[in-house]
Design a protein around this nucleic acid. Sequence first.
DNA 1: AACAATAGTGAGTGGTGACTCATCTTGTCT
DNA 2: AGACAAGATGAGTCACCACTCACTATTGTT
Lengths: 185, 185
Amino acid sequence: MRADAQRNRMRILEAAEAVFADGGPDASTEEVARRAGVAIGTVFRHFPTKADLLRALMKRLLQQLTDDAADLVARGDPQTALFEFFALLVERTAANRTVVSLLAAEGMDLPITGPLGSLTDAVRELLKRGQSTGAVHADIQVDEVMALLVSACQGALHGGWGIDLRQRTLNIVFAGMRTQDRRPR
Amino acid sequence: MRADAQRNRMRILEAAEAVFADGGPDASTEEVARRAGVAIGTVFRHFPTKADLLRALMKRLLQQLTDDAADLVARGDPQTALFEFFALLVERTAANRTVVSLLAAEGMDLPITGPLGSLTDAVRELLKRGQSTGAVHADIQVDEVMALLVSACQGALHGGWGIDLRQRTLNIVFAGMRTQDRRPR
DNA sequence: AACAATAGTGAGTGGTGACTCATCTTGTCT
DNA sequence: AGACAAGATGAGTCACCACTCACTATTGTT
């Protein structure tokens, strides 16, 4: 791949992230091109359809999150790492509104299974470590954690909610994950 | 208002609910008209813009929820009423995807403050009663509950998640709301 | 029955946005 | 340097969709 092509590809991704962040998923491809400083044809050369562009953004975000999780597995405190990941993800989400809500909508038939699987693996590891120290209740399963993560993200999408409310809300969820006082299932 | 006008207004709202439920918010107004069995002009006579139509749907949903909450305040068991409301809302949401996500997106400048305020009042009452029986931790505030409700709704939007996962996830949140084991804020 | 007033109709308009392609430009390799 | 493939360009195409309006139909009333 030629050097200029590579540079433009990057520019387009950055621009797309910004444009979709504050224009919603209906922001036009032309706006992306403008912000990237390229012609619209160039955008379509790199991403044949708009959906392809969105998918690339999602993949990128998931990759980042997976890396973060892996990092916490390797270097974090097992007692708190899972909770830290929650907080990190929520904050990252707040800055990536559109992409996340599309991801959530699952609308486009997405080849995301792969990346999402990796993320799930990383979270599973965080969960396991939390449970082994007793900081997280032993009954809890990965799919529940993933569901809580997604829900928390969605909550974070609300511009109206300040960081304070986000934290207080997360605290309730964390308490639920720690406590032994679980009613029978 | 003439009888036929009233009938058509209802038909349009029902149709819109169905259409937006499975076509997403970008479903066309013409599709709504078709499903309602009226001409497109009729839709626009009742709801001058598409946003007006969406707003009407939201208002309707919020009204239903507020009624449900009021009913639980009046007739429910204070110990569990708040949790029952959570469950009810989550299930109702699963059947109202688009409307809820638009509501969440808060995108259209919404005259929703009124209806939303009523719902908040009803939830505040449920919370107060739960706390007075000791079934809900005394520290918890309404805005946190509302945030959790919205997040839970969003979670429920995922077709992929079965009712079982939804319940297990909610159980964790409920445990968090009950427990005394809260780390210092 | 006659008559307003209210409501319904649907072809048409304007605007937008995803995507194409003939043409020009640039990077890279010998 | 020269040549050529890879890349960039942007005016143009096409489809779709929110919304309008001149006209027709239905109500409810006297």
